[in-house]
């Protein structure tokens, strides 16, 4: 027997959900969804769980991650209950549940705390600059090292434990019995989805966005590789330099389109934006764009006179690495891939 918990609605609303309780269970959303199947039917079911406050059922469900938000459900909802936006909010709520530090939830729920966190990191970067007497060379060198350390520690301390928690909620706690070999066999599935997001192609309306998203992922991971492992800013190799220009251009051009469509609010997916959504696309844009300009200034010899530009880039980078990647929307990229992996294991 499951007890109904109407309070859950109040909790979910802090993660951006609204009006979902207007649902009168017609099921149009599930009928129009191109990803919903007989075995894994959504979003009506998960919306019903949310209305009734069946938190355990939601926590052990992969369905919010199986949705790629084409928005057809919200378009066709006769009650304007916005099932698509509920699925998005549930992804936020779930990533807050997976996060052992509980910081994700805090940042999702509170804009002031997000701003304070961004300010603290910015001040930290500036303080470090002051400590180094704003000497560009040692700072750039340290920054390059910092990037590697940050990536490694965020992964080991935050992301890995959180993915393990996700596994625990989804497979262990509900007592799903799976042979160990399956974990190895299906790894391919995870990598596939991580790099291609191929499931999004199954959404009828998503093809162009999937393409944008695909080259953005390639651009982003490529840029990460070029700056961290090939040390783009310090490189003298013409191929590496041009490659970096190309990748950073992809990142800021695609994210510019994402930001502007969120501002135009024409598509269902870009109608509703939470601070975490703005933060993600704007910071990614700023990161690509500032990296591009920094390298341009290096190449034109202007950077020494414009140290502020590098500091701007560094602040964005640190905020990205310490806030958005471990506790923000970046994690959705990770959880989605693992969700496909776990789904395959469960099946």
């Amino acid at each position: 027997m499951a007890a109904i918990n109407p309070e859950f609605r109040t909790e979910l609303k802090k993660y951006g959900a609204f009006d979902f309780n207007a649902c009168y269970n017609c099921g149009n959303c599930t009928a129009v969804c191109s990803l919903s199947t007989t075995e894994d039917s959504f979003p009506r079911e998960i919306l019903r769980f949310s209305t009734l406050g069946l938190q355990d059922d939601i926590k052990s469900s992969l369905k919010p991650w199986l949705c790629y938000y084409c928005g057809e459900c919200s378009t066709h909802c006769p009650q304007e209950a916005n099932p698509g936006e509920l699925m998005m909010s549930l992804r936020r709520w779930l990533s807050a549940q997976y996060d052992w530090t509980k910081l994700s939830g805090l940042l999702y729920r509170s804009l002031p705390i997000t701003i304070i966190a961004l300010l603290i990191t910015a001040i930290g970067v500036l303080a470090f600059g002051a400590f180094e007497n704003f000497q560009l060379e040692p700072i750039m060198k340290f920054a390059h090292q910092f990037e590697m350390i940050a990536i490694a520690s965020v992964f080991v301390l935050i992301l890995l434990p959180n993915v393990i928690r996700m596994w625990w909620f989804i497979l262990k706690k509900p007592g799903v019995k799976v042979p160990l070999s399956k974990y190895f066999v299906e790894i391919r599935e995870m990598v596939d989805h991580m790099f291609t997001q191929k499931r999004a192609l199954e959404c009828d309306k998503n093809r162009f966005r999937w393409f944008e998203h695909f080259i953005l992922v390639i651009g982003y991971l490529g840029l990460l590789f070029v700056t961290v492992f090939l040390d783009w800013f310090a490189s003298k190799n013409i191929f590496i330099i041009s490659f970096g220009y190309l990748l950073s251009t992809i990142v800021f051009v695609v994210t510019f389109d994402f930001v502007s469509s969120r501002m135009k609010k024409q598509k269902e997916i870009s109608k509703f934006s939470q601070p975490a959504d703005w933060l993600f696309v704007i910071w990614l844009f700023l990161m690509g764009f500032s990296a591009f300009i920094v390298r341009l200034f290096i190449d034109t010899g202007l950077l020494d006179k414009n140290i502020w530009l590098y500091f701007f880039h560094l602040i964005i980078l640190v905020q990205w690495a310490l806030i958005i990647v471990p506790f923000g929307k970046w994690t959705h990229f990770l959880y989605r891939s693992f969700a496909m992996y776990f789904a395959k294991i469960k099946a």
């Binding site: 027997m1 499951a2 007890a3 109904i4 269970n25 079911e45 019903r48 769980f49 009734l52 069946l54």
Partner: peptide, 16 residues
């Protein structure tokens, strides 16, 4: 009050 809620796949739901 308990009911087998057909909107939740006939799951038994309860309310105080």
């Amino acid at each position: 009050i308990t009911v087998n809620d057909i909107l939740t796949g006939k799951r038994e739901m309860s309310v105080n």
